[in-house]
Nucleic acid binder design. Structure first.
Lengths: 295, 295
DNA sequence: GATAGAATGGAACGTATATTCCACGTTCTA
DNA sequence: TAGAACGTGGAATATACGTTCCATTCTATC
């Protein structure tokens, strides 16, 4: 049973192989071939018995069909179509491909080649970024920027793994002239730092699982003080999500408990510069005297 | 087991039901809930055993989860997600669906070009990552990891724009059990924080143009104290470069004056995990009994 | 029209899977 | 600090599935 001899390795190859060898098939095999070409999703997702019933043949005939194409059974062919379906589907959401990367990493875990490691992290971060682009909608971003723009003072908070993101946000927002308080928790002064937050302020809370207690408490405090909350987090069921006026979900890929921050920082940068542009536009509207044309 | 009582009938209903009842779930059930929300395709396509292994729980726990939602078992829930996946997929052709997705993004543009901004940053960061992969050699990385591994205590420093990178490094190295001192400069105690650095220690200095004075001085101090220095910087002619035992050059993309940190953080993560692997290998050699399941 | 060869349907089989069950551990409560 | 209720992991079990096998039917050739 040399499966590798002629067995197609991708969904497209399978399709081509069926078309090519269609004439050489027996009547029943041709019937199955037509069904596979017409309803590939059925064969991919449903059980063999269901496919058999739907296509009006016996399960054993489907196995014969798969073997005629060089597979060891019907299951390898199903898996092929299933993976193809998933690949096409996740052209929108790249999370699945990230998973495949992780599996690939696991398989070659023993080698531990540093250079390969870098290449794999580059790939993985690239996927995370692409996923961010696909899943973050303009509406979400616009609402977040509006919240930031309308806030009198910005309070920014994020501990542990979220700390780099928070510190980047704090630094950058200060750079573009937004009044910003960075709640860094130094000296155990978290409560004091955030104590002055008021109704016209916004707390940007960055937190990933497992969510730092301080951040959760700070969000609660901010909400009860009447302030709005914008959270950047990794799950819609995070403790902060339901209290927040706006949630920006970032799905970083994870390798052995080490999650990246590439997507989060890209998002952070986008927020900062979007705010800068927003203010520029607003400034141009309120002060139409601005003349760039100079004689 | 009246399944029809509360059991969601569509994938969307299921998602909503999980979000709604998330708080009432036990710890393990919440873990499963997060996985289902984050990787619905996995649960839809893979077998229970595979899903269990991927999400780090027992198959029986998944069955319990499904029953908690009102199903008679895990299989009905799987079928639900599977059908939803198929419906989404077969509703339109693949390409059409992608186009529709993008069109949806465009239509809800709202205020302005925030979405384009995000896309632009994603592109730039992707390029920066690709550049990192091509320019960073294995030898450089290996030398850097060796320096880190041999250091008795790690001092990590980076101010202003480099601060997020430094804080990420400090946090992550501590996570993998490396003795680490994070020189954060709180209270103007930079000199005191780094004062104890000795000959067998390593200072990791992260700095970009314009190079923060404190960091430059700290590097000088570390060198004169006999310590090694590893710098992550944007130029080989940066003030720190000639004093460092090893320089890792990172060229970040720049968009309208704002530089990203994606490549730096990817490199940082690579360093951390390379060290973890290195130690694991060494540990395996000296103590082959070491069994490690999860990190 | 007879016969050899291939193809087919359906039952039987072994396996992999979902599910159940129970002893153990954990977490509240009195 | 007990005790009880709940939650959990993993073995045991039942089920459903893919696959194989073989008697029967169909097709092609002489």
């Amino acid at each position: 049973m040399t499966e590798s001899a002629t067995a197609p390795r991708t969904a497209e190859e399978l399709r081509a192989a069926i078309l090519e060898r269609y004439d050489t098939f027996s009547k029943r095999l041709q019937q199955i071939a037509r069904f596979v070409l017409d309803h590939p999703d059925d064969l991919a997702l449903e059980t063999l018995a269901v496919v058999a019933e739907r296509s009006g043949v016996q399960p054993s005939a489907i196995v014969r069909f798969a073997k005629a194409l060089g597979y060891s059974g019907a299951m390898p062919m199903q898996r092929l179509l299933r993976d193809g379906l998933l690949a096409n589907h996740t052209a929108l959401g790249y999370g699945e491909r990230v998973r495949q990367f992780n599996a690939a990493l696991d398989s070659q875990a023993g080698t531990g080649d540093d250079g390969e490691l870098l290449a794999e992290f580059v790939d993985r971060d690239t996927l995370a970024l692409e996923n961010l682009r696909q899943t973050m909608t303009k509406a979400e971003l616009a609402r977040a920027v509006k919240l930031i723009d309308q806030a009198q003072t910005l309070y920014i908070m994020g501990f542990r793994r979220a700390f780099p993101v928070a510190s980047y946000l704090a630094y950058s927002f200060q750079q573009v002239g937004k009044r910003t308080v960075f709640v860094d928790g130094v000296g155990g002064l978290t409560r004091q730092q955030i104590g002055a937050i008021g109704e016209s302020d916004l707390l940007i809370a960055v937190s990933y699982h497992p969510y730092a207690e301080e951040t959760v408490h700070a969000v609660e405090g901010a909400v009860s003080a009447g302030a709005k909350v914008l959270t950047i987090t990794d799950s819609l069921v995070s403790p902060m999500a339901k209290m927040a006026a706006q949630v920006l979900q970032v799905r970083e890929s994870e390798v052995r408990g080490f999650r990246s921050l590439a997507a989060s920082l890209c998002l952070a940068q986008t927020l900062v510069i979007s705010l800068a542009f927003e203010r520029e536009r607003a400034g141009a509207r309120t002060a139409p005297r601005t003349r760039r044309r100079r004689s």
